[in-house]
Design a protein around this nucleic acid. Sequence first.
DNA 1: TATTAAGCGAGACGGTACGTCAGGTCTTTTA
DNA 2: TAAAAGACCTGACGTACCGTCTCGCTTAATA
Lengths: 199, 199, 199, 199
Amino acid sequence: MTTEQRSSGRRRNPATRAAILATAFDVVAELGYAGLTMEKVASRAGVGKQTIYRWWPNKGVLVLDAVLERTAGGGEPVELPDTGDLEADLAAVLVATVGELADPGFDRALRGLTAAIIEDAELARAYHERLDAPMRELKKRRLRRAQEAGQLDADVDLDLAVDLVFAPVAQRWTVRSGDLTPEGARAVVRSALRGLAAR
Amino acid sequence: MTTEQRSSGRRRNPATRAAILATAFDVVAELGYAGLTMEKVASRAGVGKQTIYRWWPNKGVLVLDAVLERTAGGGEPVELPDTGDLEADLAAVLVATVGELADPGFDRALRGLTAAIIEDAELARAYHERLDAPMRELKKRRLRRAQEAGQLDADVDLDLAVDLVFAPVAQRWTVRSGDLTPEGARAVVRSALRGLAAR
Amino acid sequence: MTTEQRSSGRRRNPATRAAILATAFDVVAELGYAGLTMEKVASRAGVGKQTIYRWWPNKGVLVLDAVLERTAGGGEPVELPDTGDLEADLAAVLVATVGELADPGFDRALRGLTAAIIEDAELARAYHERLDAPMRELKKRRLRRAQEAGQLDADVDLDLAVDLVFAPVAQRWTVRSGDLTPEGARAVVRSALRGLAAR
Amino acid sequence: MTTEQRSSGRRRNPATRAAILATAFDVVAELGYAGLTMEKVASRAGVGKQTIYRWWPNKGVLVLDAVLERTAGGGEPVELPDTGDLEADLAAVLVATVGELADPGFDRALRGLTAAIIEDAELARAYHERLDAPMRELKKRRLRRAQEAGQLDADVDLDLAVDLVFAPVAQRWTVRSGDLTPEGARAVVRSALRGLAAR
DNA sequence: TATTAAGCGAGACGGTACGTCAGGTCTTTTA
DNA sequence: TAAAAGACCTGACGTACCGTCTCGCTTAATA
């Protein structure tokens, strides 16, 4: 994980690291977080257990790394779509998310990561730093532009806005209350922007 | 769990059941879901492991039952507050929730339950039937009254409305993105009702 | 076990006793002593566990009773064959024993009983009183007649003589050193009578 | 047990092996075979259960190994006494055996091993290969020398001779029919050599 | 070029917990 | 009041993983 330079001795094998992360992802995707064991990852990756423990202190950060590696594989999108139509743009992002979660493997992997985070505050911190914060920054950037264009209430806090738009679908996914559909996603964005109150 | 009548033989001891559930709650509250083992519950409750397995098939449903027993202890509140001021009433509920989660034991117990639910679809189903659905019904009843009073958009789906109001705080709690404060809770309700868009 | 008369109330059901003993024998014959459990006997015999414990304090005496019931079922042979030819008569008895042990079920049942006896001195006492002593008495009676007829050394102790004739086959069976054959049995009798020493 | 060479990985700890065997012997000697549990051996030896199961598949072979280790500790006697007086030599051996069995711990340990053998044919095979056969070979060697010296009947099968001399005491011990005394042992040898028949 | 400090696969090890089986004991209901 | 049914506490089973610890290599950087 760390990048401090060592003076001598054999250096870390990047192929080994990649094999472990790929295997870890596959295992959570297949068996879930509870079904993932260090031993299984080691044997499937053709690696000694010690090699895993040398670089990852526990299942949680291993899974976090595995998800990051798989997710951020390659050039990142860098920016949310901006067609000028805020509602459409946000809906597009949310619909895309719903689409990704339709893949059972990815769904299970993310559930595994979330299960780890719920009970491990330290891991949650790392998760935010490396996964949540960058995503949230992109979302806030898009919303800020809308605010500057006078499309968004000038008084509203952007973090709150992000939560209002994205949390309903996320929460529905987390506790499995109802299916995730593109229409549902679009309805959430519409209501978040227009508000629930009669006018 | 079930209540089918048996013809003969010794009957289930209600005190034993209560002791197991109370102990299970205490253990999750103290050690979290990962730290809860059937063996620990058995020994702390002064009970044989088999007695637990006889009535609960796994940790998940045990914890669900334990939380239910502790939560729904006694007559339920039956109805959300209705002062006529929708925003204030919803905020009051959300602030109360935030307050409950401030108790570390309760927080950990609920995290345990949630961790179990994330990875277990079957348990999630039971959770909704026995915990989520009744709560949601109360919330929808309050919102329906507001809708009938013309305070809420007549077109809005009540389930969506519930999610919009309650999910942001729930999600923030689940993945630990930011602290839970009464002010934050109130701000969520305000924005959910008024919408994010400039008008 | 006991035969004391009870004054009132429902009396012990002889059919139940027989069913338990028969089942116990079948179970040892099938699964061995280690594979015999009170629970299995109870369920197979369609009987409550308590009913077994009421009359038999443990597996050992249950098996002893089961073997006795099956063995001494009906009129006993009462007397060993006496054709006047001692060697032939003893060989006939030993060959018959070898024949009985060829039945795998009987073999396993007897092994079960022996396993119990080896480690339980109290049970061994009961075994001798009820099974070994009567058999030994028959054998000694035959040998005594031979002694009176001048066929057997007048100085020899009859218990020792019984052991010398019957122990080699028994021991060979117990620790499974070599197969049990009629020829082998006959050779033992011959050598026991004539002695090993050159003359 | 086996001695195949492994290519890599940490090697088996001989001290652990010794501790397990010593503890196993002590436990059978104290509590008998029924009272010996893998768990007890593990905890008393300060060893993980898995470490026992890794090298011994079940109680039976563990006890066999434990007895072997304790018995064959150091250079073996290699040869039975040979003073020229066959009867005296055999009696000496048998009396020595009786003496060893007078030690309650050794008695219980051997009973445990025997109980295991009675019900486990596979274990019996191992027992013969490693304990019985070598002992029997020594005995046969002594008898063969007697045969060559014209003291023993030239026609007699040596295995039968061994059984005739040693089985009576063994069997008496196994099923606990009567006490084991030096005089009794000597009487057995005398009768086995001279025969029971009047001459 | 030889030395030496890791990295690495393999696997033994002391533990903890798993989920199951059985041992005995104790109700409760039925006959 | 005997007996079947079955709940209950206890303790052991054999297995899976945990995280740590050697082993015997291999692979660079350094001296």
